[in-house]
Design a protein around this nucleic acid. Structure first.
Length: 167
DNA sequence: CGAATGATCCGA
DNA sequence: CGGATCATTCGA
């Protein structure tokens, strides 16, 4: 789960959908063409946030994750809100969950300013959640990418039946 | 510099 | 389906 002790109080959500991105070897990755000012964070220490802004409208959050010397990240695509402070707003999201990376980032109030935050020690952090049985994990091709690997891999993982998963 | 582009979402 | 709407990147 993801927890943020931010300006709106504590917000927490159970992550139910993620996608994996590589670096240079993955045409769909922002790190595909090597480090740029925006993407250098993906080549650095794992366990920090990489948040980008897209389509002039939406923010999306990644967790930097990779083997030593290789760029990589995990895109957070969906979650289920776990209470929080803004009860009214949280309730509105309860029916639908936080399906989609843009909706997830917006609920947490994340922007590119959060890029580089340490997800172990900062107010924005990951916590281990309840285990999910492997039979409840849906694995599929990634969503919405235009430049894919020559043979697209099933690098999207979602919790079966969760309301926080995109359709 | 200017132009193209995009790991999305919402509404018609 | 198409539009919104801008940070980022690339080519000249």
């Amino acid at each position: 789960m993801l927890v943020y002790d931010g300006p709106h109080g504590r917000r927490a959500a159970r992550l139910v959908e993620v996608e994996a991105y590589l670096g240079e070897l993955d045409p769909a990755s922002h790190a595909h063409r090597g480090p740029t000012p925006r993407t250098t964070v993906m080549f650095g220490r794992p366990g920090v946030a990489y948040v980008y802004f897209i389509y002039g409208n939406h923010h999306c959050m990644n967790v930097v994750a990779h083997l030593p010397g290789v760029a990589g990240a995990v895109l957070l695509r969906g979650a289920e809100p776990l209470g929080g402070v803004g009860a009214g707003e949280a309730r509105a999201d309860d029916s639908r969950g936080l399906a989609g990376p843009g909706r997830l980032a917006r609920w947490f109030g994340l922007t590119i300013a959060h890029t580089g935050w340490d997800l172990v020690r900062s107010q924005l952090h990951l916590r281990e959640g309840a285990p999910v049985a492997s039979r409840d994990v849906v694995r599929s091709a990634r969503v919405g990418i235009t430049q894919s690997l020559t043979s697209e891999k099933p690098w999207r993982f979602a919790v079966r039946g969760s309301r926080g998963v995109t359709r």
